[in-house]
Design a protein around this nucleic acid. Structure first.
Length: 316
DNA sequence: TGCAGCCTGTGT
DNA sequence: ACACAGGCTGCA
């Protein structure tokens, strides 16, 4: 559910709270959320306590925290249902620490009071100023783990949030963002046109293009009037360029809306029921008229997931 | 290159 | 009881 814009909103919300802070305590409430950290929960806690965080970085849907030593990164992946919820230190006025990403004034957390037991709390980090970072994940597709740093292949900054040319090995295989100035768009176009795989599976392949999930894939294909099943090699270079531009535009719009409407204390990453769902043209709109041609939007099962398509605008 | 498996909650 | 939501990994 969280795609690139949602993860970027989380990164921006998180950064002002963690930058310059030291990790005091790590609580692992469910080891399944750290299964990618093979040395286990005790090792993760021992490794993290005492670290001073220098930045929160993101490429695609991968988010990570860097500390001063630059040996490795604390990876955070939200998977399907992951959230990071920040609890500001008790004595501090939240409005004064929200930073540039702080949300509307007075917005209350979407769930009950802080004293309520937190549902699906999997991991909690406590910082030296009392701030708590709660990783909440109903379906446990996401998780936290440590990943060693390596140099980026092109010696350019790894992603959004820090200028260092260092990337965690867990994210080194992920393509650069469509919004990344370092991205070579023509190489991406060429890669897509070299493949016999369906255009949608190429869009969803994070090694080809990063940040796109099922929702924005359908939106971009609808905007570019391309049927999801078309083999990459059958789409003209101009059409592929348009498709990538549409995907980028969809994500930038989502980021614009998300970046101005989230509550800094409750970083909500529900991309479906949230603010942006109302402006989707195809996804989730089975039976509704296509906003372009009024033909009904169809829902097809494709690779075990839903694809929403206007069969009039998007011909095979 | 495609698909099973990882997960849990909601809706039918 | 079963379909569905779906990002990513690892294996056939």
């Amino acid at each position: 559910m969280p795609e690139m814009p949602e993860v970027e909103v989380v990164r921006r919300g998180l950064a002002p709270y963690v930058t310059g802070r030291t990790i005091d305590r790590v609580e692992v409430h469910d080891v399944r959320s750290i299964r990618r950290h093979t040395p286990g929960a005790d090792h993760l806690g021992d490794a993290l306590v005492g670290r001073r965080i220098r930045s929160a970085v993101r490429r695609g849907k991968f988010l990570w925290l860097l500390d001063d030593h630059l040996d490795d990164a604390l990876m955070v992946h939200l998977g399907m249902s992951g959230q990071l919820r920040v609890s500001a230190p008790p004595a501090t006025d939240p409005a004064s620490v929200g930073g540039p990403g702080a949300g509307p004034t007075g917005a209350a957390p979407s769930e009950g009071p802080a004293s309520d037991p937190v549902k699906h709390l999997r991991v909690r980090l406590e910082l030296d100023d009392g701030t708590r970072i709660d990783f909440i994940d109903q379906r446990i597709f996401g998780g936290l783990w440590l990943s060693p740093l390596e140099e980026t292949a092109d010696a350019a900054p790894a992603g959004e949030g820090d200028d260092l040319p260092l990337i965690p090995s867990s994210a080194a295989h992920i393509a650069r963002d469509l919004t990344d100035p370092q991205l070579d768009v023509e190489r991406t176009v060429a890669a897509i046109r070299r493949s016999r795989a369906s255009i949608k599976s190429l869009l969803l392949n994070q090694q080809v293009v990063s940040g796109i999930g099922n929702i924005y894939a359908d939106e971009a294909l609808w905007a570019a009037r391309i049927h999801y099943e078309r083999p990459g090699e059958s789409v003209s270079a101009a059409k592929v360029r348009q498709l990538l531009a549409e995907a980028r535009a969809v994500m930038e719009r989502a980021l614009e809306v998300g970046g101005t409407s989230f509550d800094a204390l409750y970083v909500n990453v529900d991309g479906r029921s949230g603010y942006f769902a109302r402006s989707l043209n195809a996804y989730g709109r089975e039976g509704e008229p296509c906003p372009r041609c009024r033909a009904p939007i169809r829902r097809h099962v494709f690779q075990n997931r839903s694809s929403y398509v206007c069969t009039r605008c998007q011909r095979r």
